[in-house]
Design a protein around this nucleic acid. Structure first.
Length: 246
DNA sequence: TCCAATGTTTCGCC
DNA sequence: GGGCGAAACATTGG
């Protein structure tokens, strides 16, 4: 689950804000949440933060995690189940951890690509310091682009006509700026499309067979030090180029 | 049926 | 102590 999906999750939990947990259970060790109010739900990158009166939980969905509201899965034990009277939120196959610090101290919202506090200049500076890092790895770096995952990475690179294995040093100040701006712009589109249930239909290259721009076959290859799969088109995505996204 | 994949942490080794 | 790779975790659609 990528950053924009976590923002949507936060919004879906809004009806439970200010309400007391009537029952909490699960297969993970938890603080005592019964009779505690849910005070705040927000995300930082791929982290979902649930603040209660007495504790803050951090939920990370990793690759396979999911949640359901008033619609539990059959034959599955949730990692965490929060009841609010007749309503219940269930979390499955995620990593849940109690946070003992103030989230504002722990997290820097200026590197969260979905945050109002997102700081383009800060990301640009971080990229300029790593000329040897490949752009496919840089985009997945959660300390620079918190919330970006493999879908956003591949779509951003395609939009910029940029080969995933381009070293940042090849890009120049203007190219790096295009990268940073497109990450933010695409993340906001991802959010909008996902809410409208049209995200997949808007993928241009991720898990695609053919490039919609030049009709050549899309390549699928493990790339970078992170060794994550990139989908890209050798016909229109080049090393050392970055074309301003349309 | 098999296998890769919207991801991160931890551990052991050099 | 840093950097690296492997392993662990866990689910599901193609």
């Amino acid at each position: 689950m990528e950053g924009p999906s976590l923002v949507i999750a936060s919004e879906e939990f809004a009806p439970f804000l200010g309400r007391k947990v009537s029952r909490a259970s699960g297969t993970v060790k938890l603080p005592l949440l019964r009779r505690k109010k849910l005070l705040e739900v927000r995300s930082w990158g791929k982290h979902l933060l649930l603040r209660f009166e007495n504790a803050t939980l951090r939920v990370h969905f990793l690759m396979f995690g999911s949640y359901r509201i008033n619609n539990p899965r059959e034959n599955r034990s949730p990692k965490l189940e929060l009841h609010f009277g007749k309503n219940a939120i269930c979390f499955y196959s995620c990593a849940i951890k109690e946070i003992n610090a103030d989230p504002d101290e722990l997290y820097d919202w200026s590197i969260d690509v979905m945050s109002d506090k997102w700081d383009e200049g800060r990301a640009l500076l971080a990229l300029k310091k790593k000329p040897d890092v490949l752009v496919c790895d840089a985009l997945m770096d959660q300390t620079i682009f918190s919330g970006v995952g493999n879908i956003i990475k591949n779509e951003v690179l395609w939009n910029l006509h940029l080969h995933p294995e381009t070293p940042l040093g090849f890009l120049g100040a203007r190219g790096l700026r295009y990268v940073v701006q497109e990450v933010r712009a695409y993340s906001l589109k991802f959010y909008k499309w996902k809410k409208q249930n049209v995200l997949k239909r808007n993928w241009k290259v991720f898990r695609k067979k053919t490039c919609p721009r030049c009709e050549l076959p899309v390549l699928r290859k493990s790339t970078g030090k992170l060794d994550r799969v990139s989908w890209f088109c050798e016909g229109c995505q080049h090393l050392g180029a970055a074309t301003k996204a349309a």
